[in-house]
């Protein structure tokens, strides 16, 4: 099932990298210039008509964002993941919202969480989850969430000791069995 998809993608995109393959699952990585072509080809000629999710990973060490589009073909129950890497500074990724209207919501969320902009999305920049967020986008890895939380919402006072032996003493663990009692007497 997935072999045919793989073969056709390889003919069209010779620079394609295979990430993972299973009997009904294929994850490929393409050049960023041909990502939209690959998605359109998957939709029109390979039958992956449903967009399940758009996700993004912050690869800070390589100064890249890895975008992944997850497509589903319900006729033969196969999943295709198409990834592409985009530079991290002023990241711009083409929008899919005129092909799949549902993509608009995913793209708004990614814009809010990572700051990746999708020109062509009619609702870009509208509030999705964070209303009035003014800091750097929170899912970027250079955003320090604990520090931010301490600063804005106040510190929490942790419990001093978590060792139960201190509170219930001999009742705990090894001493509570007959063998444990015997060992304790020997000591």
């Amino acid at each position: 099932m997935i072999d045919k998809t793989k073969k056709e993608l390889e003919i069209r995109f010779p620079l394609l990298k295979l990430v993972r393959e299973m009997h009904n699952y294929l994850h490929v990585e393409v050049e960023k210039a041909s990502a939209m072509d690959a998605i359109l080809m998957a939709k029109t000629s390979l039958g992956f008509k449903t967009l399940q999710l758009i996700s993004s990973v912050d690869r800070m060490e390589e100064n890249l964002f890895q975008m992944t589009w997850i497509l589903e073909n319900y006729n033969n129950e196969t999943t295709l993941l198409i990834s592409a890497r985009y530079p991290r500074e002023n990241c711009i990724v083409p929008s899919l919202s005129d092909i799949w209207p549902a993509a608009s919501a995913f793209e708004r969320e990614i814009f809010e969480m990572f700051g990746i902009s999708f020109p062509g999305n009619p609702r870009e920049g509208e509030d999705f989850l964070l209303e009035g967020w003014k800091d750097i986008p929170p899912m970027r890895r250079d955003f320090l969430t604990e520090e931010y939380s301490m600063k804005l919402y106040g510190e929490r006072q942790p419990r001093e000791h978590l060792d139960p032996r201190q509170y219930i003493g001999d009742m705990v663990g090894e001493w509570n069995t007959p063998m444990g009692q015997k060992r304790k007497e020997e000591k």
Binding site: L129, L130, P138, F143, T145, E146, Y148, S149, M150, Y153, G154, E155, R156, Q157
Partner: peptide, 18 residues
Amino acid sequence: INGGMYYDSYNTINRLDY
């Protein structure tokens, strides 16, 4: 009371009575 398991979250409060 003190943030619970979301104490370090960027989007949840830590103490309600503020």
